[in-house]
Design a protein around this nucleic acid. Structure first.
Lengths: 240, 240
DNA sequence: AAGTGGTCTAGACCACGTG
DNA sequence: ACGTGGTCTAGACCACTTT
């Protein structure tokens, strides 16, 4: 089936650039030549050059930032959404720097759809926290957290730029017993993409975590929207 | 930042088609109008029409098969790679049909890189099994399995179109104690894409599972290459 | 002001799938 | 044989970023 004798031009360009990247011609976060330069270098048109770039983007080798150009993607970090060790420390142990920025925090009513899913009454007030996380100064994910105020009243008065679960443990003696994870690729909606300095329609990885206590009561819903090339999800499961 | 007052034409087309799909104008697996028909309908060119289609593909709403056209994606199934219940039954419980096809099985030497990772000596002979799995008659994943023959000698003589772990349990009394998962989006390489009737460079979801027994000894490595729009990974974790 | 990526036009030829 | 999607050309204008 299918011979593919002749490799398409855009794939040849892809191979050429991929080899250059592998050979270290550019380092992490370095900018590639402009599309018009590439067009000239490979004696082609911008459409074809962009097809090659889009392919490399899909593979995660390069990324683009707004209208500034194409850049070499740094290595993926490992990320275990089932653990609650501090994100910053966890990332640092892998040799990267990380930081967290709280974009918004407020008391809201839990959306009906989510209330039904987690088993809370519709209209229940919850804390909503919106954060952006950087790895090596590159914004890599937007995170939206809902917390059950019953368990951690007044938590919004603390600084939320650190480890949230450290805070919940030390100040409220909370401990999650069960975690339910959902993970799937999805495109980033406009606002999220914007906040990550990426383009609308960029592919992302959606991770959702629901934590409950020993009584099965809802503690936390965490929704994360990642640049797809920034991470590798790693989960260890030991049956009991 | 960024006004985006005027929505790009390809996004308008996307919205229009997305609305049609949501409204049920086409059902699952139905074929959309041809690109040239869409081009005419929206008074544009094929480049722009294809940009809209590519956007919908990235979102998972439609998929393409070879040169046959664009089709409406069926709903994602839930999939828990940490469980070893039979795939077919698990999928059926969600109202889909499923089947498995063994493409190849043989005794090979474990690739060095993998041997190092799982802690086996380089050159260790292992069983390699290649399978393709269908959901509702649509090929959705390719799976490559390495089994440690020390634990299940002669396993290749059985039919492998059913649940592998059922077989390992009943015939070899094997039970995995620890599972290590890796999950991340990645493009499908040529051969894999071909086997899934998809295009080279299509986005996929890569899932890798390493199972060990109570002594930490390697039992199984399972590498799965999924169409990204076919599934939602669901994992439940209870600490011990 | 100059350069960049984002979008778009109006064509073309080819390989492959389906009738 | 025909229609389809896959690839490609040679331009263009615009919004935005950078200099």
């Amino acid at each position: 089936m299918q011979m593919q004798e002749r490799r398409a031009l855009y794939l040849k360009i892809r191979d050429y650039l991929a080899a250059d990247i592998a050979a270290g011609k550019w380092s992490e976060n370095d900018k590639l030549p402009s599309e018009r330069q590439l067009t000239e270098q490979f004696s082609t048109t911008r459409v074809t050059a962009r097809q090659a770039l889009a392919q490399l983007e899909a593979e995660g080798l390069i990324f683009r930032a707004n209208r500034r150009g194409w850049f070499v993607t740094p290595p993926r970090i490992n990320y275990d959404p089932s653990r609650d060790v501090g994100f910053v420390r966890y990332v640092q142990e892998q040799g990267f720097s990380a930081r967290t920025q709280t974009l918004d925090k407020q008391l809201v009513e839990l959306p009906d759809k989510i209330a039904d899913e987690v088993g809370l009454e519709r209209g229940t007030p919850v804390y909503e926290i919106l954060r952006r996380r950087y790895i090596n100064d590159r914004p890599c994910l937007i995170e939206k957290i809902y917390l059950n105020p019953k368990n951690c009243p007044g938590v919004l008065q603390y600084s939320l730029d650190g480890s949230l679960w450290n805070l919940l443990r030390t100040e409220y003696e909370l401990e999650p017993v069960e975690r339910h994870l959902e993970i799937y690729p999805q495109t980033l909606e406009h606002r999220i993409a914007d906040a990550l300095d990426a383009n609308t329609g960029t592919t992302g990885l959606y991770i959702r975590r629901i934590c409950r206590d020993q009584h099965g009561e809802f503690l936390e819903l965490d929704e994360e929207f990642w640049l797809h090339n920034a991470l590798k999800v790693v989960v260890s499961v030991s049956p009991f």
